[in-house]
Amino acid sequence: MSTESFHDRFAGHDRPSGHDHAANAKERDGCGQAVDLEGLKARIRAIEGGGGVAHRVDGRPVARLGAPIDRALPWNGLPTMALHEVAGPSATAVTAGMARRFLDRKGALVWCRSDGLARLQGELYGPGLRPYGIDPARLIHIRARDAEETFWAASMAMRSQAVACTVVETEAFDLVTSRRLQIALESGGGAGLVLRHGALESAPNAALTRFWAEPMPRAILAADDPAPWRLRPRGPSFRLSLWRAKGAQPSFWTVSWNERTLAFDLASPLVPGAVAKAAEDGQSFART
């Protein structure tokens, strides 16, 4: 990664950033057809190959999350060698899902947390990872004593070639720490997921994308289906908003985790107008 693109990353999200992203943006804005074509290609690839990480952007492998989300992202998925932040009440579940998408590549999943956070938020529970398709053989659980050790362990894991994805649980995530992790990722080649606890924090950091994940409210779940337990085969549903991304528009999705394909689907039980309303929420979110 050149210093120039680094500068672009931290220069702010408002102005159009880096030439690599600019090219993407032009493609998207100039001819809407191309976007659809890409989406179709992605879908075909997903059908044929089960949605691997074959695709690359700037030489970086990209993990596909699921067709509806990928279509709105300029990289057609989430790139590796970059940090992605997930916050909100459903952050753990969405992080687990995203981590699984990065595991289509070879390598381990390293999950770092501190003792204090485990006490407050609960300890990661292996059997709960089953619906997310994360196997015990590939998971390395790091039980750091405090935040400093957590970030140290995470940066070691990110620097390693043998790790496909590193998850860091944290409350605070400042610019300096995030840059250090970003540099580690660039020498390692895996992906970094930052699982943030607590309220929405809009202070800048080096994450390429920043998501806010909420569960689907019960009212929306129930409006379409009077028997909510029948929803189970479709997996848990989330309202996922990408409220800040370098080189991408803020977007909003209602998705569910598909336990069969191990990817995110568009959630089907939709109340008319809910998406539009939610999209507005997402937009106003991004402006804060």
Partner: peptide, 25 residues
């Protein structure tokens, strides 16, 4: 790749202790 992973595990265990770098089984 497994050698890479073993190297990482050595470094982590050295600072954190072997009981803090674990597999869940």
């Amino acid at each position: 790749r497994s050698a890479d992973l073993a190297r990482l595990a050595d470094q982590l265990e050295l600072r954190l202790g072997a009981d803090r770098v674990v597999r869940l089984e």
